[in-house]
Each structure stands twice: as C-alpha cells, then as structure tokens.
Amino acid sequence: MTQPRASLISLDETPWYHLVSRCVRRAFLCGKDPLTGTSYEHRRAWIEGRILALSSVFAIDIAAYAVMSNHYHVVLRVDASRTHGWTMEQILTRWTQLFTGPAPVQRYLSDDRVRMSAAEMAQVEELAEIYRARLHDISWFMRVLNESIARQANQEDGVKGRFWEGRFKSQALLDEQALLAAMAYVDLNPIRAGIADTLERSEYTSIARRIRNATITPDKDRNVGTGGADNTSKLGPASSKPEMPPSPTPFRIGSRRDHASESGPLQPEKSLQNITQASLMPFEASEAGLQHGIPFSLEDYFELTETLGRCVHPMKRGFIADKTPGLLVKLGMEPQQFLRHADHLLKTFGPVIGTADTLSALAQRRRRRRMRGIAMARQVFQAKAA
C-alpha cells in the first residue's frame, strides 16, 4: 500500500537514503532499445551529471549511484544543518540556479535591491526561509532531477507527457550495515545486469568514478585515496554542529499546493548545464579533515565490491569466495549470508533497512509490531556466535 512520503523519509531517524526512479515508457531511458534499434546511451551522462550538479546546490551529498537502462539508483546523505549556515543571499542564489524565482527575488539579487520597499524585503525573507527548507528536502532534489531529465528526453523524442513511472522509491538506511548493503547493491547493478564485467567498466556508476579518481586501481596495492573531495563520519544526526532551531515555514514542506508562484519555472537546460558538479562523498572523512564521510575505508569497500562482483554472477550464484572481505568482519556481519543474498538484499526490505536491533527499535518508536525485513536482517547483519 502506498505510504505518505513523510512516513518514509524522516531525518530524525537517519540522514541516509537509497532512492530509485524508473522510466514509465516502453522505450528505454538509456542504452539501446532492442525493439527500435535507437540508442539512448548519451542520456546516462545527462543523469550522472545532473545528480552531481544538484548535490552542489542542495545540502545533499552523494555516496553512490548507478544509471541503468530504464531506472537509476542513488544513495545519499542529507545535511539539514548545513542550510542553517547559509545567508539569505546564498539561499536565494542557490535556489535561482534551479528556478527563475518570482520578481521580488530577482530584484533582490540585482542592483535594484536598494530600491525595494520594506514589504518586498519581507516577502523575500519569507521566500528565503521556504527555499532554505527545500534545499535539504529529498523530494525537491528528486523533483528537479526528474523534471529536468524528462524535459530533455521529451524534447529529444518530440513527445509530451509523463516520462517517469511516478513517485520515486525510497529506503531509509538506519546504520552502517544498511549503508554498506545499499552502496554495494547500487554499485554492482551493471555487473548483475550483465552489461559490465568489471568494476572499472561499470560506466555511469559511482564505483567507476571512484576508481578513475583513485591513485591506483582496486586490484593493485590498496594504498588508495578518497576517490573524490567529498564529505561524512559515522551514521547519525545530519551534523555534529550545535543544533539550531529550524527555520519557520508558512506551510508544511511536501504539501501538494502549487509552488509555481513561489519558485517560478525551472531554469532552461542551458543554465542547468552550467552548474558545477560536486564530488562524491569521501570515505573516512575524519582522516581527510572533513566533518562527514562514509564510515568505512575506500580500500575495504573496493575489496568487498570486487568480491561481490565475482560472486554475484548468473553462473556462480551462491558461490562464496575463499577470502572473507575484512569490512564484513569489522561490521559484525555474517559473510556467507551477505555474499549469498547481496544481489536481492534490498528487495527483501521495505522502506527501512537496518540491523535487527535498529529495526526493532524503530518499530517500537512507531508503535508497530515489526518492520519488514527483520528476518533477513538477523541472517545477514548479525554474525553467528562463536
């Protein structure tokens, strides 16, 4: 049954999420359509570039992504407290990179600001607080991403109408084990689909980008850097900075009212293409002097994804490598079960992924008897007693 987005995304529970959005048409989003012979491969670059560009505007960092033939995956972290440090001008400048903005906002960002009345300034201040909340809102991130891609694809195909299947699917990642499972699942999508045979050749994925950015490839001596100038530490609140009171908003974020008068239309594609792309989040940010990062090492993650890439193969399903990836041991996960179920693990869970303990605690807070996936969590995320 469809659930309201507010019950699926709660930054009080976790800032980490796995998102999936699918194309509604029979024709392919990317790749080559076997029915018509038309190639849409270039659209992969559209999506990859737009994900990273929007990350530089929103207070949202990208940990992993994969662009497939008719859908894409993103694993991201929301840093809600980051927006509290942005000035009103910074907020308006960021928002108008995406939307034209109403006339008072345009005047405020121009030389005409000095001639604005007190009433106009008050209106701009109110709009800035609305935009501040939206700049750490996953639904707005996905709205801009999907609308801009649909607009390009519809123009290229010479058609109108819906391009995406509907609402994007979201899964909350409650702990490090859930984050690891989601990232590995996403990065190995091309290998599982049979369109790539190595991590390096998994084009339009975060793992391929990290390998290109790393000082050496993962199959060599693993003295590897972060794979990008990004930012994380341990799973938990959106920031370790002192909490600041949330900015007041004149309506509930995510409500279905018409926002056109508050934002203006989406900027033309030429303007959106000029937005600078952000880097991927780094691993072990504390070692890199950053506040936030993915809470395990890049070397360990490369080792795990390589092992899964060899095991998750149509002719080798259920095969367990002789060497156990060290990251599974560090996180107290059951290696054989994780490697065996990695190719379909996320499908077993519902809108929330985590260990049995975190799922049980969440069920108690929400006054539910149990959470979907708790049986699988006991198998995979909990090492057997010696």
Score class of each variant (00 low, 15 high):
Thr14Trp: 12
Thr14Ala: 09
Trp16Gly: 03
Leu19Met: 03
Cys23Leu: 06
Arg25Val: 09
Asp33Phe: 15
Asp33Thr: 04
Leu35Ser: 14
Thr36Ala: 07
Tyr40Ile: 05
Arg44Thr: 05
Ile47Thr: 11
Ile51Val: 14
Ile60Leu: 14
Ile60Cys: 10
Met68Pro: 00
Val75Thr: 10
Arg82Gly: 05
Met88Pro: 00
Trp95Gln: 05
Gly101Ala: 02
Asp112Ala: 15
Arg115Phe: 00
Ser117Pro: 04
Ala119Ser: 14
Ala122Trp: 07
Gln123Cys: 08
Ala133Gln: 06
Met142Pro: 00
Ser148Met: 04
Ile149Ser: 07
Asn154Ala: 09
Asp157Gln: 06
Arg162Glu: 10
Lys169Cys: 09
Ser170Trp: 09
Pro190Asp: 06
Ala196Gln: 04
Glu200Asn: 00
Ser202Trp: 01
Glu203Trp: 08
Ser206Val: 11
Ile207Ala: 03
Arg210Phe: 00
Thr217Leu: 14
Pro218Trp: 02
Val224Phe: 10
Ser233Leu: 06
Pro237Phe: 15
Pro237Trp: 13
Met244Arg: 15
Pro246Ile: 05
Pro248Phe: 11
Arg252Thr: 15
Arg257Ile: 09
Asp258Phe: 05
His259Asp: 06
His259Pro: 00
Glu262Ala: 14
Gln267Tyr: 04
Lys270His: 13
Ile275His: 02
Ser279Val: 04
Leu280Tyr: 10
Met281Arg: 13
Pro282Trp: 09
Glu287Ile: 09
Gln291Val: 12
Gln291Lys: 04
Tyr301Thr: 03
Glu303Leu: 04
Leu304Pro: 08
Pro325Val: 03
Leu328Trp: 13
Leu331Asp: 01
Phe338Glu: 02
Phe338Asn: 01
Gly350Asn: 07
Leu362Met: 13
Gln382Ser: 10
Ala385Asp: 04
